[in-house]
Computed example of a mutant assay.
Amino acid sequence: MDADPTPTRARWAGFAALSALAVMALVAAIGLPLYVFPPAPTVTRADLIYVIGPPTATRIADAEALRSAGVADHVLVSVPASGADSADELSYCDRVYVTCRTPEPFTTRGEASMLAAYAAPGDEVVILTYTPHVLRTRYIFDECADATTTVVPVDEHLGLTRWIYNYAYQTAAFVKAWIVGCAPAPTDALP
């Protein structure tokens, strides 16, 4: 008589499940310093504060706190062309020291490209974005902008689902940024 294969299948299923959990734990651990806890530099003085899109209330509040602390006098805000966060609808854009513009394309690379119109090579610019986007923003602005940039994470509440999504999305978008470089691409799918 043949031996019952069920115990072997059960062991393999258990091993596969444990392996999958170990891989997920490893990916999560590797992503912690990249997406969850990126270095947060101290900023004392800059020529410009740049809020990259979307202009959430938290990013705007952080920009105002930096401006009030004397870091920079002027704030540039990347806004979509239409909708609630557009320059026409966002009341923050009405302040004298704030410039709201839509980059072309409305992507991180487009935002880096747009910076050339507002900061000269060597100018110090503080860039505000949400935490999981910091690593990719640093890479793109270091590669594509002439100004000296410091990317500061903005602490926006993200639930577990959004963190999982951002791990995958930011990794794929980073690979795309590395492959595509700074060449203009009007139809970017990943901002």
Rank of each mutant, 00 (worst) to 15 (best):
V43Q: 10
T44E: 08
T44L: 15
R45E: 06
V51C: 03
I52R: 00
T56Y: 04
A57T: 00
A57C: 04
T58K: 13
R59P: 00
R59A: 00
I60V: 14
A61W: 08
D62V: 10
D62R: 12
A63I: 10
A65H: 06
H74N: 12
H74V: 11
V75H: 01
V75T: 14
L76P: 00
V77F: 12
V77W: 02
P80W: 09
A81L: 08
A81I: 04
S82M: 10
S82H: 02
A84R: 12
D85V: 03
D85Q: 12
S86W: 11
S86I: 06
Y92F: 12
C93N: 12
Y97C: 04
T102W: 10
T102V: 09
P103A: 08
E104C: 00
F106Q: 08
G110F: 09
S113C: 02
L115C: 02
A116K: 07
A116G: 14
A117K: 04
A119T: 04
A119S: 04
A120M: 01
P121F: 12
G122A: 05
D123I: 10
D123Y: 09
E124Q: 15
V126A: 01
V126S: 02
L128E: 04
L128Q: 11
T129M: 05
T131A: 10
T131H: 13
T131P: 08
L135D: 08
L135C: 11
T137W: 03
R138P: 02
Y139R: 14
I140S: 05
D142M: 01
E143F: 12
A145P: 11
A145F: 01
A145T: 10
D146P: 06
T150W: 00
V151L: 06
V152Q: 12
V154S: 03
E156M: 10
E156K: 05
